[in-house]
């Protein structure tokens, strides 16, 4: 039957590659945890490094475990578009937050509803 071969062909990869990927993932996890104990320059650098490693790990999972490397490009496109939308969402919200005018009245009066979680909790 013709579809047997096409089907089998699609299951690329194989135990060897999968095991290699697993080893790489474990090593990267060690690096992430290790790096969290080291203080890099600014606090931001640690976050970027941790998320960077996470992205490498994620790509390994996606490409090999999820077969994207061998699959029809359409499936990868779905993933990329979802991630793009997520990035767009995050970026837009962040742009708004970071560029807001910090506005205060000339005669500063604490905002009526000051952020006082303790008090707010007391009320519940």
């Amino acid at each position: 039957m013709s579809h047997d071969t096409t089907h089998a062909e699609r299951a690329h990869g194989g135990p060897k590659i999968y095991t290699l990927v697993l080893v790489a993932l474990l090593i990267l996890t060690f690096i992430t945890v290790g790096a969290s104990y080291v203080k890099l320059g600014s606090g931001m650098a640690n976050v970027i490094l941790a998320l960077g490693i996470a992205t490498v790990k994620g790509s390994l999972v996606g490409l090999f475990f999820m077969h994207l490397r061998y699959d029809k490009p359409l499936n990868a496109l779905v993933l990329l578009v979802s991630l793009f939308m997520l990035g767009l969402f995050l970026l837009s919200c962040y742009t708004d937050f970071e560029t807001r005018d910090p506005l205060e009245p000339a005669r500063l009066k604490a905002p009526v509803a000051a952020p006082a979680p303790a008090a707010a909790h007391g009320a519940h």
Binding site: T32, V33, G58
Partner: peptide, 16 residues
Amino acid sequence: VDLIWIYLFPLLYLIS
């Protein structure tokens, strides 16, 4: 599910 955890772990446990 694994992939999501790969991001959750550094974000929640390792932020500095």
